[in-house]
Structures are given as structure tokens and as C-alpha cells.
């Protein structure tokens, strides 16, 4: 695979005679005699090598030389094209940083004006939100609880009591140095995406994500219940969310728990996975 050319490129010696390299490419460029004006290599400024402080381990900590050493002479043509690329790269960088800034900063007069352009540039890969425990951290804990209706083989329907699904997850999180996403993020984010897409009063969908988030929530619950019935079928599930405020630091009384109970949701065959 290795051409003799490659082997030659590996010799440190060839760095001192870039002319011979360029000679091989006569056709590629109009001979450029001003190449000599390329700035002389300054060993201190060349990041390609690390000077003394690396000590005797220098070779390991010294970055490898690439095919084109940083201090190799470059013709004016090459430098011009490189400079052009550099300008383009810098402009793209600035545009990107600008849009990320608009996207990330708390809403302001300018970000409102450029919302559409920002969205086009940012989504889907650069979407981000750094309101971490902010502006205020949540001041309440919620627990998602669920009950089921099972149909027995003889046709009778059994309604279960409430199971504390969040409680099960919390049991896994407690005492765990690296909690699983399945415990920490699944119900938490499913519920918050549901509340974002539904009216708290009558559970009607707001926007387009309503059905999707409801289906997700239903499937999470079905997934937890589906193994429970051997000779039974899971007909429908119901969710309620128990919310308990975190008291003020100096609070004397325990805050009251409030419940938001949703309607019965019939299971669909595709829910079982």
C-alpha cells in the first residue's frame, strides 16, 4: 500500500527542502517565486511542538507532525486560498456563535426579531436550554401514580389500587452513584412534556404535541403493568399525580399533597412492548 513517496514524507529531513516537494507538482500551480516570503518559522510560537517543559517525555507529549508541517513554506497562491478558507471558516463560526447566543440567552428584544432565523440554524442539532434549576428551582415534588383495570379470563374486571411508579424509580435512585436514565429522566420528562401540551383544568390538548405526549405516558404505565397479569388482559390504565410542595426553609407545618387525576385510558395492542 505504501508508496515510496509516503515513506519519504516521513523523514524529518524533507522538511528542510520543501522545494523538492513543490517541484513534483509543477502542473498544479503557476510557478510562484515569491514563496520565499512565507514567514520564517518561529519555534516558540509553533504549537506543533512543545518546547522544553515537557522534559524527557517530550516525544509522547509532542503532537505528531502532519503531512504538511506547520512551518513548511507555502506559495502565495496557497496562502491566498488558505486565507480565503480561513475567512469563510471564521465567518461561519461567528454566525454560529451569534445564533447560539440568541438561542441560549434569556429572551430579549433582539432574539425575538431573529426567532425564525435562529430556529432554522439551531434545530435540531444545536438545541439547548441552560435554565438549570432556574430562574427558580422547582419548589414541589411530584409522584406519578397509576392504577389498572384487568379483565380476567372469566370476563370479570379487577381494578387495582394506586401504585407509586415514581416511588419505584426513587427506590432505584437512592444510594446510587450513577442513577439510570430510565429512573431519573423517563417519568420526569414524560410528565413535564405532557403538562406542557395539556390544559391542567380539563386535560385538553394544547398545540400539536398533545396526543403524542399522552400516548407516551400511557405506554410508560402499560409497560409497568403488562407483566402483572398472567391470565388477564390489561384493559385500561389511569394516572394521577400527587404534588407535594417543598416547604419554606423555616416552615413549621408539613405542606398538603394535592392530586391531579386523569381519565381512564384504554390500552392499544401496540402499547405492549
Amino acid at each position: 500500500m505504501q508508496s515510496p513517496d509516503d515513506a519519504a514524507a516521513g523523514q524529518p529531513a524533507d522538511r528542510s527542502k520543501p522545494g523538492s516537494e513543490a517541484g513534483a507538482t509543477v502542473g498544479a500551480s503557476t510557478a510562484d517565486t515569491t514563496a520565499d516570503r512565507a514567514p520564517a518559522p518561529d519555534p516558540d510560537r509553533s504549537s506543533a511542538r512543545i518546547p522544553a517543559q515537557a522534559g524527557e517525555r517530550a516525544p509522547v507529549d509532542t503532537p505528531i507532525d502532519t503531512a504538511v508541517p506547520a512551518d513548511e513554506r507555502r506559495s502565495t497562491a496557497v496562502r491566498s486560498i488558505s486565507a480565503l478558507f480561513a475567512v469563510v471558516a471564521i465567518l461561519v463560526t461567528l454566525v454560529h456563535v451569534f445564533f447560539v447566543f440568541l438561542h441560549v440567552a434569556p429572551g430579549n428584544a433582539v432574539s425575538g426579531d431573529y426567532r425564525k432565523q435562529t430556529g432554522t440554524w439551531i434545530y435540531p442539532y444545536f438545541e439547548q436550554n441552560w435554565a438549570l434549576f432556574a430562574p427558580n428551582p422547582m419548589s414541589e415534588n411530584f409522584r406519578l401514580q397509576a392504577q389498572s383495570r384487568m379483565r380476567n379470563a372469566d370476563g370479570t374486571v379487577v381494578e387495582s389500587g394506586w401504585s407509586d411508579l415514581t416511588g419505584d424509580d426513587l427506590d432505584h435512585i437512592r444510594g446510587n452513584l450513577y442513577p439510570s436514565k430510565a429512573d431519573q429522566n423517563m417519568i420526569r420528562r414524560a410528565w413535564s412534556s405532557y403538562t406542557d401540551a395539556h390544559d391542567a383544568k380539563d386535560e385538553s390538548a394544547i398545540g400539536t404535541r398533545g396526543p403524542l405526549t399522552q400516548r407516551y405516558l400511557r405506554r410508560i404505565v402499560v409497560h409497568r403493568f403488562q407483566d402483572a397479569g398472567a391470565n388477564r388482559t390489561l384493559e385500561s390504565v389511569r394516572i394521577r399525580v400527587a404534588t407535594k410542595p417543598i416547604g419554606k426553609p423555616d416552615a413549621k407545618t408539613e405542606p398538603e399533597t394535592s392530586y391531579r387525576t386523569l381519565g381512564w385510558w384504554e390500552t392499544k395492542p401496540d402499547d405492549f412492548r
Binding site: P18, E21, A24, T25, G27, A28, A67, I81, F85
Partner: peptide, 11 residues
């Protein structure tokens, strides 16, 4: 070619 290689390295 060497010069193209240089441009690539610069990029």
C-alpha cells in the same frame, strides 16, 4: 499534489 496538500492542511 504538494500545494493542494498544503491547502487541505490549512483548511
Amino acid at each position: 499534489p504538494r500545494q493542494v496538500e498544503q491547502v487541505r492542511a490549512g483548511l
